[in-house]
Amino acid sequence: MSSKKPCIPPDGEGISNGTRRDFLKKSSLVTAVLLTPGTVVEAAEKQWDEKFADIFEKIPVSLEVNGVKHNLSVEPRVTLLDVLREQLDLTGTKKGCDRGQCGACTVHVDGVRINSCLSLALTNDGKKITTIEGLAKGDELHPMQEAFIKHDGFQCGYCTSGQIMSAVALMKEGHTRSETEIREFMSGNICRCGAYPNIVNAIQDVKQQGGLS
């Protein structure tokens, strides 16, 4: 007698009844479709393989972005950066190197700055995320945004959203005791235009004005 365990675990061991029923329903539907005469060629033409992959691969995730809750369905491998840009249309967060080296994609997750290109969307389930679009209050700019404008802390502007998000986090972390410290803790954000002196001036200005409330 075979000692192999069933492929689907019993109740309470990793998969719920609802999940099992959903899986079986989807499996039956796919099998029925593929056994229908002539559907193999049609499936190839209509790229049904990709559509079926979406059914099985996408996983629900809940994100609170800039105070708004979103219930999404994402692939396990998709990054937080791509979800923000492609599904939520929050394109202020930029995709630069896509390797966590330039800082253009910096956002805050539960108040902590991260490179969103290195963070999977699923690992942020239930967390609060702030992007550059969430800093301003209506038409009232955030103090750091105003300081960057005042001190010309940007040129082409591509890295600016990430620079500002890091600068806001920097102040909350308390790393503004000297110009050297500011430069050190902003070093993860690259500005190819070389606006570093003005960025430092902007941060120091916000500190002199009393910091962030």
Rank of each mutant, 00 (worst) to 15 (best):
L72I: 07
L81D: 10
H142Y: 09
G67I: 11
L63R: 02
Q155P: 06
L135I: 09
K128H: 15
D125I: 06
G67V: 10
E86N: 14
S116T: 03
H151D: 03
C159H: 01
L63Q: 06
C97H: 03
I132S: 03
I149E: 11
K94E: 13
G67F: 09
H108A: 13
K150G: 00
R77E: 14
L141E: 11
Q155R: 00
L122A: 06
I114T: 11
G111H: 07
Q163L: 12
A121T: 12
S116V: 05
L120G: 09
Q145E: 12
L72Q: 04
V109D: 04
N66E: 11
L80T: 01
H70C: 03
E140K: 15
G138L: 10
E64L: 11
G100H: 02
E86R: 13
C156N: 02
L141P: 05
C117Y: 04
A104Y: 08
K150P: 00
E140T: 15
T160V: 01
Y158F: 15
A104C: 13
L80G: 02
L84Y: 10
D98K: 02
K94S: 07
Q101M: 14
N71S: 15
S73L: 15
A104M: 12
F154H: 03
I132K: 02
G67K: 07
L141A: 12
H70V: 09
I132W: 08
E64I: 14
V74Q: 04
L80R: 00
C102L: 06
G157Q: 05
H70R: 01
Q163K: 00
K69V: 15
T91W: 08
G134Q: 09
G138W: 08
R99E: 15
T79A: 09
Y158E: 05
V74K: 03
V78S: 07
L81Q: 03
K127L: 13
L135W: 10
L120R: 12
L63K: 00
N71Q: 15
I129M: 04
F154D: 01
C97D: 06
D139L: 14
D152Q: 13
V68I: 15
V65L: 10
S119E: 13
V109Y: 08
D139Y: 12
L84D: 09
L120M: 15
E133M: 12
A121I: 06
T91H: 04
A121L: 07
E140A: 14
G100Q: 02
K127Y: 09
K95P: 00
K95M: 06
L135A: 09
P76H: 08
I132N: 05
T93Y: 10
M144W: 07
G138F: 09
L118W: 02
E146M: 10
G67W: 12
Q155N: 07
V83C: 05
H142W: 09
G162S: 03
C117P: 08
R77V: 07
M144E: 06
R77W: 14
